[in-house]
Design a protein around this nucleic acid. Structure first.
Lengths: 164, 164
DNA sequence: TTTGAAACTCATGCGGC
DNA sequence: GCCGCATGAGTTTCAAA
């Protein structure tokens, strides 16, 4: 599973704009269109690229208010954790969900039309669930997503010396 | 800025697969290709769709370990907040960043090759910054992103009665 | 593996509805 | 506003290097 310079360049380009034509992609990465086409096909096949997704503007889409809801469930056992995760991930307010270590078990990222929506989510939606032991709300003033995630550098071939 | 049923269907489809052909899109949404093409063009022009992005598998890309780093900066004034945000968002380990209310000012989502990478991020990277007053690390066991974000329902036209 | 060209599919703009 | 068709652009395949 090695990614060479061309794979990295293609990943950078496709994270930036997944709908550019294969010709543009080829021109930007300095190869023939048939080469970039084949490489991108392999990246998908190997599972490096999991999909292509349109990004929405939450403000324009009428959901400008974001919050992070910390939730502790009881008991913190697998069926409880997984059950809650599946339920929460399907709620329309939820745009992301972390299962975490620490005093809470979940951090739920919600986007709603207004501050009332946050309150309603917490006191209407979450209270449906009996396994919830604690809830704590944090408002999100701003959410920045990294526009380019780079694959980790592959392990260097090891020589006899541990370091130099 | 109203989004009708067709707009919503197109957004759903394009969030699911942004690279399907316009013909598929038209077939799935039950309109002619020229119609879906024009609607999608308008959705982009109006800023509802902000872009199309390839999604990477972090495990396959060699960055299977995720953490959330809470950071408090001092003083919590605009130039300090913005300066830190710009700096942090550019670090290669960072895949997302929240500016938040509450006891901390930032929640930084990082993805690294191993647990050492989390520790190195905290004690090597973050210590470069003098404005940091407090740091707290939470490990991420799992991160789920919602596959479909729906636009908020538009406000109902108001009648004289408040409710029925 | 990469390439260039051939065959085919698709996007795109416009006139009619 | 939506559709269907014509045209040009883009994708995809494959034999050769």
């Amino acid at each position: 599973m090695e990614l060479d310079a061309l794979d990295r360049a293609l990943l950078r380009e496709l994270q930036n704009d997944a709908r550019q034509t294969n010709r543009e992609l080829a021109a930007r990465t300095g190869v023939a269109p048939s080469t970039s086409l084949e490489r991108v096909r392999l990246l998908r096949e190997r599972g490096v690229i999991t999909g292509y997704h349109a990004a929405l503007d939450l403000d324009v889409a009428g959901r400008p208010v974001q919050a992070l809801i910390s939730v502790r469930v009881r008991p913190p056992a697998r069926p409880v954790i997984e059950g809650f995760r599946e339920w929460a991930a399907r709620l329309p307010e939820v745009i992301g969900l972390f299962v975490t270590s620490g005093p809470h078990d979940f951090l739920i990222h919600v986007a709603v039309p207004d501050v009332d929506g946050v309150y309603a989510f917490v006191i209407d939606r979450l209270t449906e669930r009996r396994e919830i032991a604690d809830v704590q709300t944090t408002m999100v003033y701003e959410h920045v997503r990294s526009p380019r995630i780079e694959p980790a550098a592959p392990d260097r071939p090891r020589t006899a010396r541990r370091s130099r």
